[in-house]
Design a protein around this nucleic acid. Structure first.
Lengths: 154, 154
DNA sequence: TTAAATAGTACTAGAATAGTCCTCAATTAT
DNA sequence: ATAATTGAGGACTATTCTAGTACTATTTAA
């Protein structure tokens, strides 16, 4: 569930490669051969990332792509919305009339809270975090996970 | 992004209707006419929820569906995984060899952390929360949103 | 026994994704 | 200047996934 598209997945791979050797310019073809993702697909992704101002492109010979900001300043949320549009779990947007007729739709407001919560969580993770080594043993953080929606009603 | 399927959306509508008038048995047809969702679709969803032990079904005349637990004991995470399978953003699962060849795949562990974080957030929201009135004005909770992955590295 | 209701499964149409390709524009090096 | 390199932009296709439907079997109450 909660699928991200493959393209988004690729984007994180590409970006974390770029983050690791910083301050460098990389041509699309170079990135394609290093990551093993087909060139046209890499190109497509890079273009989307440029439009989202996550990357800066330089045309012409010796051109290429580079990060627009430092890895600590690029959030995963930004990457995801660059590739998939605004972050939202539901598209309850299907005509408000329909929702008023149907009985269940006071829910919508609560979905929005959940969306916000997840968005904030993704906002707090940066590219810099992604390229750090994993310590899956270390589960101390679990205790820190919050219950934001429930807390609304205290 | 982060799309949930329409079916999952419907499921929350159906379940919150059922949660509101508790302890009652509801036939699929009744639910269909009240929610405005087509009967075959409602049936499909109800069956999935039964398989996930979120609902209990009773066959035969006077049969129907009822909640298997109280609304406070049914998490949104459970509903989502009932409809869409395990909660995971990426399906990096595409052959580990492929990932070792490509340069970017130390990322996977970090994705798992993000998945876990989101899973925990969804686990903390229950059906009971969903049927409460929304107070979108009240944004106090925003201050409480955490930075779980970053905290891993302190 | 009959009617009401769910269980299970298979199928179809439509939409969304992934992936590719082609032409234009810009920059550098010769 | 001119050629080579590289990105920009858009159009297009095939495949996969989802939503929705239909049909048959099974169970239970009256």
């Amino acid at each position: 569930m909660l699928r991200l598209s493959k393209l988004t997945d690729y984007a994180t791979v590409i970006l974390s490669f770029m983050a690791r050797d910083n301050a460098q310019m990389h041509a699309a073809m170079e990135i394609a051969s290093i990551t093993g993702i087909a060139l046209p697909t890499v190109s497509k992704i890079l273009k989307l990332l440029v439009n989202a101002k996550i990357l800066i492109s330089t045309r012409g010979a010796k051109g290429g792509y580079e990060l627009a900001r430092t890895p600590t300043e690029i959030s995963i949320a930004a990457v995801i919305s660059a590739l998939e549009g605004p972050i939202a779990l539901t598209e309850c947007s299907i005509s408000q009339q329909g929702c008023e007729q149907a009985s269940g739709c006071e829910i919508r407001g609560n979905w929005n809270l959940i969306n916000q919560t997840i968005h904030n969580a993704l906002e707090s993770v940066t590219l810099a975090d992604m390229i750090r080594p994993t310590r899956s043993q270390d589960l101390a953080w679990k205790q820190e996970v919050l219950i934001p929606v429930a807390s609304l009603y205290r």
